[in-house]
């Protein structure tokens, strides 16, 4: 990591989306998901730990209220499917994965994450899902697409696409973890999460 002058060490936070903007985006994403699936039949939302599960919960709530149905849901912890364990060393497994009550076979599974970046998380999630069964269809849904893909994987449903530099970090804030809802950009690297 290159040395930085002292005035740069405190990360500057740049506003990207406010709470109401996130909620509007979530409502739109919910509609798009229902439309792509042609209704809510066989629809399952699976968030990726940690913040993806919170975004998934928001989308699920939106769909349930709009369509008057109850959706099956699950979650994915992709730690054991990462391709960089050798390099990064073991990472604490935060959530463990939860299979939806009725499984994933023959259903339309929507993988939900907070930020799309390299595509490696989505790749790991796809591998984990295929170990669990054979979904009819898999969709990828993210709140923020920041570009910078290292794999040929693109989201099907996106809340907002932003152009950011490599050293900038997109942070999705959720009430359960951060106390508020929103999206911010962190300027200096080395900032703590």
């Amino acid at each position: 990591m290159p040395l930085q002058p002292a005035f740069m060490t405190a990360p500057t936070r740049i506003h990207v989306m406010s709470e109401s903007e996130v909620r509007l985006a979530v409502a739109r994403m919910a509609r798009e998901i229902v439309e792509m699936n042609g209704g809510t039949d066989g629809l399952v939302l699976m968030g990726i730990h940690r913040r993806g599960t919170q975004i998934a919960a928001l989308i699920r709530q939106e769909i349930e209220e709009a369509e008057g149905v109850e959706l099956d849901a699950g979650s994915l912890d992709i730690t054991l499917y990462r391709d960089d364990l050798e390099v990064v060393g073991p990472i604490p497994i935060i959530g463990g994965s939860e299979l939806p009550t009725h499984g994933v076979d023959d259903r339309c599974v929507v993988i939900v994450d907070d930020v799309a970046y390299t595509g490696r998380t989505a790749r790991a999630a796809l591998n984990e899902l295929s170990d669990w069964g054979r979904p009819r269809r898999i969709l990828l849904c993210v709140l923020v697409d920041r570009g910078g893909r290292e794999l040929p994987i693109q989201p099907d449903v996106t809340g907002r696409a932003v152009q950011v530099l490599d050293r900038q970090r997109v942070e999705v804030l959720v009430p359960e973890v951060d106390g508020r809802l929103g999206v911010e950009l962190l300027q200096a690297d080395g900032g703590e999460s």
Binding site: D84, L85, P90, A116, T121
Partner: peptide, 21 residues
């Protein structure tokens, strides 16, 4: 097995840069 298998901490810092998402 999992905890012993990874462990190359000196490489960890470098990899962490691109690790998020």
């Amino acid at each position: 097995l999992y905890l012993l298998a990874g462990g190359q901490p000196e490489k960890a810092e470098a990899a962490k840069q691109g690790a998020e998402s």
